[in-house]
């Protein structure tokens, strides 16, 4: 991934900054410029909103054929996490054996390495989740 494209998304990846529609109150992540529910009524009313980082596992899968950046962690867990704010995020679950994980388990966001551009390129950081 090109550095600028990654860099632009750092506020969301580091600090879970999404957007909240001031018209209907729905929180969106990643940030959106327009609320798909309110459409034109949301123009100018989408405000930055930091998620609490707390949520519950909505669904998950165990990955046995990893992408190169994840090969040392195989098998690893990818989950859909329903945040306290209602929005669902996809992320890796760390500090948890696959056998221990269950739907509904409470998790919290943590900052981890997401990958790197080889041994001389940039290191990408962002949110993952772990049991609370």
């Amino acid at each position: 991934m090109a550095n600028p494209r990654y860099w632009r998304e750092n506020p969301s990846r580091y600090n879970l900054i999404g957007k909240r529609c001031e018209n209907c109150g729905t929180v969106h992540f990643p940030p959106r410029e327009i609320c798909p529910k309110c459409r034109r009524k949301s123009i100018g009313k989408m405000k930055s909103h930091k998620l609490s980082g707390r949520g519950k596992v909505y669904s998950f899968t165990i990955v046995h054929e990893p992408m190169p950046d994840f090969s040392l962690m195989k098998p690893y867990i990818m989950a859909m996490v329903e945040m306290e704010e209602g929005v669902r995020l996809t992320g890796q679950i760390v500090d948890c054996e696959p056998a221990r994980l269950s739907i509904g388990m409470e998790v919290e966001a943590t900052l981890r390495k997401l990958g790197q551009e080889g041994s001389s390129g940039i290191i990408r950081y962002g949110y993952k989740f772990r049991p609370r």
């Binding site: 040392l72 962690m73 760390v94 981890r112 290191i123 950081y125």
Partner: peptide, 8 residues
């Protein structure tokens, strides 16, 4: 863990 370093 492999995804932890001094920054995290």
């Amino acid at each position: 863990y492999p995804d932890e370093d001094v920054i995290t």
